[in-house]
Nucleic acid binder design. Structure first.
Lengths: 265, 265
DNA sequence: GCTCAAATTTGCTCTAGCGCAAAGAAGCTC
DNA sequence: GAGCTTCTTTGCGCTAGAGCAAATTTGAGC
């Protein structure tokens, strides 16, 4: 099953590590068995093109790490000691200004990675990662990460592609922020969230994470008041159905119309 | 001199490549001799920790590429076929929206690299690179880049650190844009430019690149009108001295006061 | 020195969106 | 289900800054 090259010793260690991880997850966490973890990692873009047997090796080097709603995986400004892949839950990545304004950079869910770049560049986390739902992640520290990168070269390239994608997304958001008006940005934010975390229900697409008006404001560079007004308006037009920290998109196309600034029918 | 391992053939090729490059630069370009190129690359963060002899190898794989003011090294949307290191001049990296709004992401100068991430991730340039002064850059195509990365592992890590830094900067700018008001953002932009391209003169710190009010607006997410008003105001207070596409900072501390929102004396 | 295009300034108007305040909902906890 | 906290909505006033128009300045080329 473990069909990679290496000394017997290292194989033993790895298997032992895997067993320990299995034990931890089962006993401490009462959660996802290893098989599913494997599937999850295999699905993660970071491990694309890497053999399941090799992914097991990676798994063995990981530590599980839990965070309940409101707890942090790491804080902005701390030394970046590890990178994480989320197994379960939702995590909010945000920056806070010296004046106390918060800005939400993005939300993440299962199979997303956080901290990949920073851990390798030996710096400090540039933002904080807070669980907005009870979450579980796998954690690799600096040494483990370096070792993995050396063992499995595709990882480095995958990581790079990932980073390139994120970079581009951030650049696009920057452009939006500087050229588009609020309503459009909010529409885009909702559509983005729908793509990431949308759950199809009979009411429409439910954004499966607790999302306050304040959060949306911090995602789009506006205030909770303005967001509230916009949502009320959309609700009247039948585009969305909102509740406390809960949004269902009933008419995605309506939002697209706004996001793309198309003529309204 | 070329003290790396490799077959005689490859050494020959490399030396030949180097000679060809020298010839090109001397004959076609009438510019910087190889020795200076070496020094420049050695100064570039990308090549940090790499031996001069090895840098020569990298140089041999590069092609010189010139762009006069107004010409582009690459355009947004083109396949990312190469990455560049600027030798001389100034380059403006900007994105343009479908509606035609332009956004300036940053300016770059000698020893800065452009396109490092994208070339390796086989995507498309997410922005355009326009020379705002006559410029010369070294160009490595995909194959050359890959080869270099394999030959000199520190390159990959250096690249990663570089990207991490850029990423962080962009995140900070994003935060600024979404939480701070225009005057502050413009002050920050000027200080950033001063750090990058500032030339000490007896008048003060001259920003050594042609910079219109429009440019500054596109850098800070505002309009040329507002920038003009702000600069006029600052000129009256003696913080800056402005001309057509020309800005001299007379009182950096004054700008810092605004950028940091300190109480005015 | 004249001409012309491009950059800049400034007055004026207008509005998107900020932000306070105060009054509802909606969930928790006990 | 009473009480509390935390979200949300909405009215209202206000201002930062957009954006047009019309001078005015600047520098480059001839």
């Amino acid at each position: 099953m473990l069909q990679f090259g290496g000394s017997i010793d290292s194989v033993t260690t790895l298997v032992f590590g895997l067993d320990r991880l299995r034990a931890k997850i089962h006993v401490d966490m009462h959660i996802t068995p290893t098989v599913e973890l494997l599937g999850l990692l295999a699905k993660s873009p970071l491990f694309k093109g890497i053999e399941p047997a090799e992914i097991e090796v990676a798994l063995a080097a990981a530590q599980p790490r839990r965070a309940s709603r409101g707890e942090f995986f790491f804080h902005q400004g701390e030394a970046a000691e590890a990178f994480f892949i989320i197994v379960e839950g939702r995590v909010r990545l945000s920056q806070i200004t010296p004046e106390g304004h918060q800005v939400i950079i993005r939300f993440m869910g299962p199979s997303d990675g956080m901290g990949i770049i920073v851990v390798l560049s030996n710096t400090v986390y540039p933002l904080s990662a807070e669980a907005v739902a009870d979450s579980l992640a796998l954690r690799w520290n600096y040494d483990a990460t370096m070792e993995l990168m050396e063992q499995f070269p595709p990882l480095a390239l995958n990581g790079l592609r990932l980073v390139a994608g994120r970079f581009q997304e951030l650049q696009d958001r920057y452009r939006e922020l500087s050229t588009e008006r609020v309503e459009r940005r909010v529409a885009r934010a909702l559509l983005r969230l729908a793509r990431q975390t949308g759950q199809r229900t009979d009411e429409g697409v439910l954004l499966d994470l607790p999302l306050s008006r304040q959060d949306l404001g911090e995602m789009t560079g506006t205030t909770l008041y303005t967001v509230s007004r916009i949502l009320s308006n959309w609700e009247q037009q039948g585009f969305v159905r909102t509740g406390r920290e809960r949004i269902v998109i009933r008419d995605p196309h309506g939002l697209v119309t706004i996001a793309e600034d198309l003529p309204k029918r």
